[in-house]
Amino acid sequence: MIDPAFVRMMAQYNTWQNNQLKPVLEAMDHDDLIRDRGAFFGSILATANHLLWGDTIWMSRFDPSVEAPAVTGARSTDLHPTITSWSADRFRMDGKIRFWADGLRALDLKGDLTWFSGTMDCNMTTPVASSIVHFFNHQTHHRGQIHAMLTAAGQKAPVSDLLFMPKDA
């Protein structure tokens, strides 16, 4: 299904995307970041928080050295009250994702992953490879929502096409 090169490419893409988003978000007024824009999670900051929460919970499942978020999924949109604290945590998580991806071997992508899902209130088991694909798909989905909200807010949303990712991103 996937191989370590795919995981490394998607980890690089994640970092590239977030590095483009951070300066746009950091330049915005706080009220603009928390304004309800009619998206699933409401605001840009709430969506960015949920995305970071999702990355953290998945990384805690993939890599035992990563701690699960201190808040539940129901509070995922409240992870950080400001874009400054979000940005610092986002930077750290992106580094952890890259480090994890760089260390993966083909064997690590085999087998199943089992965890307790607070959302479903039960144990879940899925193939590791499918879980990793979901992890990256979740990122892309919510960054797309942020992109749309930025555009609607009159901001210049960054380039998101994977094919345009610089080699050194």
Results as ranks from 00 to 15, higher is better:
I2E: 00
A5M: 10
F6E: 01
A11M: 07
N14I: 02
W16V: 04
Q17S: 14
N18T: 01
N18D: 02
Q20E: 03
K22C: 14
E26I: 04
A27S: 09
D29F: 12
H30C: 11
D32L: 13
I34L: 06
R35K: 13
D36Q: 06
R37I: 05
G38S: 09
F40P: 11
F40T: 01
F40N: 00
G42H: 04
S43D: 03
I44E: 03
L45V: 04
A46T: 02
T47P: 15
A48I: 04
N49L: 07
H50S: 01
L51H: 09
G54T: 07
D55I: 05
D55E: 09
T56S: 02
I57W: 11
I57M: 13
W58Q: 04
M59L: 08
R61V: 01
V66P: 10
V66L: 03
E67C: 09
E67Y: 11
T72V: 15
G73H: 10
L79V: 02
H80E: 08
I83R: 14
I83A: 04
T84Q: 11
S85E: 11
W86E: 00
W86Y: 10
R90Y: 00
F91H: 12
G95Y: 00
K96M: 03
R98S: 06
A101E: 01
D102N: 13
D102K: 12
L104C: 03
R105F: 09
D112I: 08
W115S: 11
F116M: 00
S117H: 10
G118Y: 05
T119C: 05
P127K: 13
P127L: 08
V128S: 01
V128E: 02
V128P: 12
H134W: 05
H138A: 00
Q139S: 12
Q139I: 06
R143P: 00
G144A: 06
G144E: 03
Q145Y: 02
Q145R: 07
H147F: 14
M149H: 07
G154N: 05
G154L: 02
A157M: 08
P158G: 05
V159D: 15
S160K: 14
S160N: 12
D161T: 09
F164P: 15
M165Q: 05
K167N: 15
K167S: 14
D168Y: 09
